[in-house]
Structures are given as C-alpha cells and as structure tokens.
Amino acid sequence: MLFHNFAVQLYNMKRIFLWLSGAMLLLASCNQYNNVMKTADYDYKYEAAKEYFVKGQYSRSSVLLGELVTLMKGTSRGEECLYMLAMSEFCDGNFDVAHSYFKKYYQSYPKGVYVEYARFYAGRSLYESVPDTRLDQSSTMAAVKEFQDFLDYYPYTHLKDRTQEMIFALQDKMVEKEFEAAKLYYDLGSYMGNCSYGGSNYEACIVTARNALLDYPYASPERREEFSIMILRAKYQLAQQSVEEKRLERYRDTIDEYYGFMNEYPESKYLKDAQRIFAQSEKYVNKKS
C-alpha cells in the first residue's frame, strides 16, 4: 500500500514537472518572439522568420515577413521574402491572402526562382477556398483560370497531373452548380412567382441544362445523362402546360428530343420514363394530325 501511494505521488510529481517544463519553454518561446518583434536588426528578424517557418510556426513567420517584405523589396532577399510570406499564409490556411501574395510574386518576379511554384500555388490557394456549390462560383472559375494559365506557361511541368486533377474537380463543382440550378427550375415547375420577365421555369431549366452540356463537355457520363433526361422531361411538361396554339409544336419538339436522347442513351436507366413521355406526346400529335 505504501509503495502504491509513493508510486502515485511520484507519477503526479512527474506530471507537474512536465507541465512546468512545458510552460517554461512556452514562456521562453514567447519572450524570444517578443524580442524578435522589437528588434531593429532586420537581418536577425528575417532569419528568425525563416526559422519559424521551418518549425511550422506559420503565424509568427507571416507576421515577421509581412513587416519585412516592403523593407526588403529590391534587395537580394526581397524575392525569397515575398514567396515565403505567401507560403506562410498558405500553410496557415489563409488562402485568400496567400493567393494575393503568390500573384504579387509572379507579377513582380516573372523570371524569379520560385515563379513556377508561385503560379501553381496561386491556383491551389483558390482551389482550397472554393465555396459550396449553392454559393457563387466565381472563385471556382478564377481557380480554373489560374491553373490553365499555369499549364500554358509550364506545359511540361512535373505538377501537370496534379494540376489537371484539380481542374477536373473544379469543373465537376461547376457542373454540379448548373445541375442544381436546372433541377431547381424544374422543381419550381409552373410556379410563376420568380418569372418576372416572362418565360417559364421549364424553359429556364432547358436553357440551363443545355448550356451546361455545351460548356462542360467533360462532365461525367452519368451527369450528362441526367441533364439530357431533365431536358426531355422539361419539354414534355412545357408542352402539357402550353396554350393550345403552341401545344402541338412543343409536343413535336418533345418527340424530337426523345429520339436524340434514345440515340445517345439507348440503354438508359430512364428508358421507361422516356418511352412514357414519347407515347403520350405521339398520342397527342397523332390526334391533331
């Protein structure tokens, strides 16, 4: 029992010692950082910033480099300082800030030592910060442009495969955005509250889905098939709800769409629905002929 109590006391003392040691190291580190911040020795401050970067202390590194980057502009260290500042912000998860610094680097140093990586990480910074598909995708398009510009400048880069993978992922995100928009129009159907300038939700669905098929030819076959059946369904619904003088023409248009769909997807999982639409459309056209 005495041995057990002694062992527990020893364990607790060890924990306290480790905690105190850690606290002392942290305090020493903070004091050292504060001293670095206060010094007017910019060479020392720059070397400290590099050391913080190597240790993964990116917030400290970026604060110091942010102060030095203007002071070192035009010197032998200016280029490295700006690039390392961009990388510090990137590694710290500040992707918008990182993008602006990477872009500033490749614009300021078009033949710089790190320019290839700066262009790559400019795109990567935007890639890491693209929003949910329900939100505006302008940053997604900007990321695609950054990556495409990068490949234009460095068509044989060893980063080509990684870059193309990210471009495809971004394009998939934009395709998904268009699919959700087209589906929303279809689901709204005959609701007219959002049609302030005429037209209908079904017409908007058709235009959105068609544009997506044209703009994103590399969308997955499954998603292209879903766009295509949505167009067919929307045309059928539009024909059903049309005024009498437009109905025959729109049913004929639906039939044409059906043949196009079947030609491209003869074994579609939507086959029964497509055939039902065709049968109903053909029945109306035959009755009016």
Score class of each variant (00 low, 15 high):
54 V>L: 12
65 L>F: 08
70 T>S: 08
41 D>T: 05
53 F>N: 02
77 R>W: 09
75 T>K: 00
39 T>P: 00
84 M>G: 03
59 S>W: 08
39 T>A: 01
56 G>Y: 07
95 F>N: 08
78 G>D: 06
62 S>F: 07
83 Y>E: 00
68 L>D: 01
70 T>F: 02
83 Y>H: 11
63 V>I: 15
63 V>T: 13
97 V>F: 10
49 A>W: 13
53 F>Y: 13
60 R>K: 12
53 F>E: 04
62 S>I: 03
71 L>D: 04
74 G>Y: 01
56 G>W: 09
98 A>R: 03
72 M>K: 12
91 C>G: 12
41 D>R: 15
39 T>F: 04
88 S>M: 07
47 E>P: 09
64 L>N: 04
51 E>P: 08
81 C>V: 01
61 S>T: 03
41 D>V: 01
74 G>Q: 03
89 E>C: 10
92 D>P: 11
78 G>C: 05
59 S>R: 13
78 G>P: 04
79 E>V: 02
43 D>K: 15
65 L>I: 00
83 Y>I: 00
63 V>Q: 14
74 G>P: 05
56 G>D: 00
72 M>R: 10
81 C>S: 13
88 S>I: 07
85 L>N: 05
54 V>N: 12
80 E>L: 05
52 Y>Q: 12
97 V>L: 10
46 Y>I: 05
40 A>L: 11
70 T>K: 12
89 E>D: 13
39 T>N: 07
88 S>A: 14
48 A>V: 13
99 H>A: 07
59 S>T: 08
